[in-house]
Design a protein around this nucleic acid. Structure first.
Lengths: 132, 132
DNA sequence: CTAACGTACAACCAAATGGTTGTAGATGAG
DNA sequence: CTCATCTACAACCATTTGGTTGTACGTTAG
């Protein structure tokens, strides 16, 4: 696996999905379990549709996947997903912290990872415009 | 340092603050630099007030602190802040992944960290109601 | 002192968010 | 077949968010 660079939109969706207590709770519940959406919904003081939307947000962020089983839709947390969130933090942090220690972790868990060129290119006032 | 448990609101604010490209960019810019808000604002295709609001969001999340210097307000990223985000992920992940490997990392970077009691308390269907 | 600068904050607006209810389509149980 | 269940999705609503402009205030430069 080559640890692709995460796009801004991807990171936006990732962190936004994690920025809600209910959604984080859903993640915890669905690591093992593969709960159906309606089963999940029983656990929260809100409507089925609301939980359905939360699951959709998690799904768009790639934190969760759904698997049809009969008339039920089983929700399952992607165990690697939190790893991608961690990668997003690593990429943020790599802008200042040594890089090397983080690089070490990356290389440790994936020997085929390519090294992201040397730092030193520290232009700090490029007025490029982020979206929105 | 004792690695206090992060409250739900804290984690909400943390991830929400990170879920925006502009804000993440501000974080990268202000690690070294301590840019003033107006200096920062020059870098983005939006008004000064808008950037001011982004900084406020980062500040409420504890990712950034402001330090008055004459008539300028210097913004500085808290280097430990990303560590707290990482801790939030750890606490999420600890619900399933072994705990031990993550614990190892925590202990490695801070020998005084206390261990957060044994697992095994895996109640997975408590219908407690998250806020909002 | 005066003017320019940097900041703070209020008021306003459009769009997104998080929630609701209602309707309709599949699927499994009896 | 019929009915209950699970899901999907649209429509709607209140609040928040991310942006704007305008005004006011403290501080530094000249």
């Amino acid at each position: 696996m080559v640890v692709d660079e995460l796009s801004d939109e991807t990171v936006d969706r990732l962190f936004h999905a994690l920025a809600d207590t209910t959604r984080r709770d859903i993640l915890r519940r669905c690591v093992r379990g593969k709960l159906s959406v309606s089963r999940l919904a029983e656990a929260y003081p809100m409507s089925f549709a609301a939980v359905q939307k939360h699951v959709a947000v998690l799904e768009r962020a790639g934190l969760v996947s759904k698997q049809r089983s009969g008339r039920e839709q089983l929700v399952r947390t992607d165990p690697d997903a939190v790893g991608r969130a961690r990668q997003a933090l690593d990429e943020l942090e790599s802008a200042w912290r040594g890089r090397v220690d983080r690089m070490a972790r990356l290389l440790a868990e994936d020997p085929t990872a390519e090294e992201p060129e040397a730092p030193g290119t520290e232009e700090n006032d490029t007025p490029e415009g982020p979206r929105r």
